[in-house]
Amino acid sequence: MKTAVLVFPGSNCDHDCYHAVRHVLGREAKFVWHQETSLDGFDLVIVPGGFSYGDYLRPGAIAKFSPVMGALAKFTAKGGLALGICNGFQILTEAGLLPGALMLNSGMKFICKDTYLRVETSDSFVTGRMEKGKVISVPIAHMEGCYIADDDTLKRLEDDDRILLRYCGPDGQTGDESNPNGSYGSIAGVLSEKRNVAGMMPHPERVVEASLGGVDGLLVFESILNSLSAA
């Protein structure tokens, strides 16, 4: 598996994603500067978190014009796998590679804390190793993580089984109490129509070693490895 970790001006979870893939999983990874125009030769592209272009204007709104995004569109059109995490998710929605949008948290403040997530589908390259209904603990760290979409889009996401993860309580129950940012339907992550582009606000790369307080993020990376080796 050869992973590209995109680097935009203001990316700051790029090192963490690189560390997870390269040092924890022991797989090949490379930083790809946003001015690059090709993603040929990679099996997976991670669009990492951070504050690309300072989140000025709107998170992801400027990054989507970077040259590498044209390459990413081509890469995913050919079925390449791409995962956007946090700001990466925001960039992918801005670029139209994923449906919906991420708005200011309902509490109007930045939130960094552990959240419980319920796996909504096993039919994806990021959750393939997890059973539907499984509850995992992965932290969030964002100001604009409130997922919204119009009713038709939400219905299509439900009908196509393209909702990846929902925020929930430790017992798997969803509701206002366990919804940290006001996301519609407590949605924490979604899939593209062709199921090869995924976006999630929580940070799996932050829980890949016991010393960091959890290893549930490994399930995400192992799912990706698994689906690549199966392909």
Binding site: H19, C112, P139, A141, H203, E205
Partner: peptide, 27 residues
Amino acid sequence: VYNQYDHMVRTNTIEKPGSDAAVIRVK
């Protein structure tokens, strides 16, 4: 207070805010 701070980025924080000392590992 500290839930408003990203206290995990760079994945070195091995003792999070709240304990006597905050601790980062040196990769």
